Amino acid sequence: MLGSAGVAGCPQGQEAFASCEIAGRNTEVFVCFDENQATYRYGAVGQSPDLELSVPIRKVDFGPWSGVGKSIVESIVFYNLGHSYAVYAGFDRPFSEGEMQREERHFGGLEVTRDDELLAELECVPKSVSYGFGGGIYDAKTTAGQRWDEVSRSWGDADRSASRQKLLQEEVQNGLVEECLPQSEFVLGGVAMGDPLTKLGKLGSPEPVEMGAEAGQAIDRIFARGLQIDLFQNKVIGLVGLSPSWETPSGFAVGVARADVIKIFGAVPGGEVASAARFGVLGCDRDTIENRKWFLGMTFGPDGRLQAIGMTHLAP
Rank of each mutant, 00 (worst) to 15 (best):
M1P: 08
L2H: 14
A8S: 14
E15S: 15
A16H: 00
A16M: 08
A18Q: 06
C20T: 02
I22D: 03
D34F: 01
Q37G: 00
Y42Q: 08
G43W: 03
A44G: 11
S48M: 03
P49G: 11
L51Q: 09
V55L: 08
V60R: 00
S66D: 12
V68A: 11
V68D: 11
I76K: 05
V77S: 15
N80W: 14
L81C: 05
H83P: 01
S84M: 03
A89V: 08
F91Y: 15
R93D: 04
R93V: 13
M100L: 10
R105W: 04
R105T: 07
H106F: 14
T113W: 08
T113N: 12
T113R: 15
D115M: 10
E117W: 02
L119Q: 14
V129S: 02
V129W: 00
G136T: 00
I137H: 03
Y138S: 11
K141N: 01
T142L: 09
A144D: 01
D149A: 14
A158N: 07
R160C: 01
R164V: 09
E170D: 12
V172A: 11
V187P: 02
D195P: 04
P196M: 04
K202N: 10
K202I: 01
V209C: 04
E210W: 08
E210L: 13
G212F: 11
A213C: 07
Q217A: 14
I222P: 07
I222D: 08
F223M: 15
A224Y: 09
L231H: 02
G241I: 04
L242I: 04
S250K: 15
A253W: 00
V254F: 03
A259G: 07
A259R: 12
I262E: 01
P269W: 04
G271V: 07
E272V: 10
A276Y: 12
F279E: 03
V281L: 09
T288G: 12
T288C: 08
W294F: 11
L296G: 04
M298Q: 03
M298I: 10
F300G: 02
R305E: 06
L306I: 15
Q307N: 13
Q307K: 13
A308K: 15
